[in-house]
Simulated scan of single mutants.
Amino acid sequence: MTRLLASMIAALAFASAAHAQSPATSAVQYLHPPGAITPTGPWGLASKAGNTLYVAGMRGIDPKTNALVAGDEARVRQAFMNMKQIVEASGGTLQQTLRLVVYVSDMYRYRPLANKVQEELWGKGPYPPRTIVEVDRLNQDDIIEVEGTFHVPN
């Protein structure tokens, strides 16, 4: 009887997991708002589940040309603006940021620019939790990538 019960529980758990991953019952929305950049690979710009919006790593790409913006500060600003555009298209604001992750290819050179742009966009705070990491290389040899998690209206 114990083996039968264990088998039934395992079968139920497998069926529940398969049902939860079914696209027909998924509560996850994949978003690509008008005017946003075109992904440079097989990835989406954002996903939303309930009131939580996850924005993929945004870089300094001009959404009109899909080319990297010239100039370090302009490129850093564009990365943040690309993220902001997706958040606002989803009904949110940067003040609803739950968490930011910033990747830079040179901490000493680009962290001050990321700080400057973030202060411009968030004002005097409060500031969201942020992690900044120096990486060896970014896609297309870019200098910055910023991703975020946001609380937005349902």
Rank of each mutant, 00 (worst) to 15 (best):
N66Y: 12
R3K: 14
K64G: 10
R109H: 15
A11D: 09
G41V: 11
E134A: 07
P33Y: 05
N82V: 05
R77V: 01
P33H: 07
A89E: 14
N66D: 08
K64W: 05
S47Q: 07
Q85K: 14
A89I: 10
D136K: 13
H32T: 01
T149A: 09
D106R: 00
A56H: 00
S90C: 06
P42N: 13
R59L: 04
Q85G: 14
E119P: 05
R77I: 04
L94E: 06
G123V: 07
W43K: 01
Q95M: 10
V69E: 01
V55K: 03
L100C: 04
F14V: 14
E145Y: 02
K48M: 00
G125Y: 07
I143D: 01
A70C: 10
G125C: 05
D62K: 03
D62P: 00
K48G: 03
K124R: 11
Y110N: 04
V152L: 01
V117R: 01
S7K: 01
A36S: 13
V101P: 04
T2Q: 15
N115Y: 05
F150E: 06
K84Y: 12
D141Q: 04
G50K: 05
W122T: 15
R59P: 02
A36C: 06
K84C: 02
I132N: 03
E120I: 08
D141N: 11
G35R: 07
A10Q: 07
P126W: 02
L53G: 00
Q118T: 07
P39I: 02
W122Q: 13
N66V: 12
I144D: 03
P23S: 11
A10L: 04
N154G: 15
S22F: 06
K116P: 02
P128E: 09
A46N: 12
T25W: 09
A15M: 01
K116A: 03
F80P: 04
A10N: 09
L94C: 07
N154I: 11
I86N: 02
A27K: 03
T2M: 13
M1K: 15
D142N: 03
L98K: 15
A27H: 07
P34M: 12
D142R: 02
T93D: 09
L5R: 14
G35M: 06
Y127C: 06
R75G: 04
R130P: 09
V133S: 12
P33C: 11
A89Y: 04
W43C: 02
Q95Y: 08
Q85S: 14
M107C: 13
P63N: 09
T97P: 07
P153L: 09
L138E: 02
E88M: 15
A27N: 07
I61K: 00
Q95R: 12
G91K: 08
N154H: 14
Y54E: 13
T93Y: 05
R111T: 09
N51C: 02
A20K: 06
T149H: 08
A15N: 00
K116D: 10
R109E: 14
D141M: 09
M58Q: 14
N51Y: 01
Q21F: 13
P34N: 15
L100N: 00
T97Y: 08
S47H: 03
Y54D: 12
A49D: 12
Q29E: 10
V152Q: 00
E120T: 10
A20G: 07
Y127V: 06
L31T: 00
D62G: 06
I61V: 05
Q29H: 14
V28I: 09
G35C: 11
I144N: 01
I9K: 11
E120W: 05
Q29F: 06
R137G: 02
K48N: 08
L5Y: 14
P129R: 02
V101K: 13
R137Q: 07
